[in-house]
């Protein structure tokens, strides 16, 4: 594999990292949490409260995943600049 091919492979692989998909999932989560909070307001069920409370940790994990992929893209850019 010559250097041009290496560059092409790395650039494509970095572009295929699922940043957009995770951001879209974050938006879906936020939207669904709002729907649910509205529907469950005043119901007092422990399961309902626990389900609502579980949304934030999931969103936090996704935000960290997004940050990790951004860092990965940045490293790939550094590599492409260097070679």
């Amino acid at each position: 594999m010559d250097i041009a091919e290496v560059r092409e492979h790395v650039a494509e692989a970095a572009a295929d990292l699922p940043l957009a998909a995770l951001q879209a999932s974050l938006e879906v989560l936020d939207e669904q949490r709002s729907h649910l909070a509205e529907a469950l307001s005043g119901t007092g069920s422990e399961d309902a409260k626990a389900a609502l409370a579980a949304f934030e940790p999931v969103a936090e994990r996704l935000r960290r995943a997004v940050a990790a992929y951004r860092a990965a893209v940045s490293c790939c850019d550094d590599y492409l600049d260097a070679v």
Partner: peptide, 8 residues
């Protein structure tokens, strides 16, 4: 980059 992807 690979370490970041693994974390993601």
């Amino acid at each position: 980059a690979l370490a970041h992807i693994a974390e993601g």
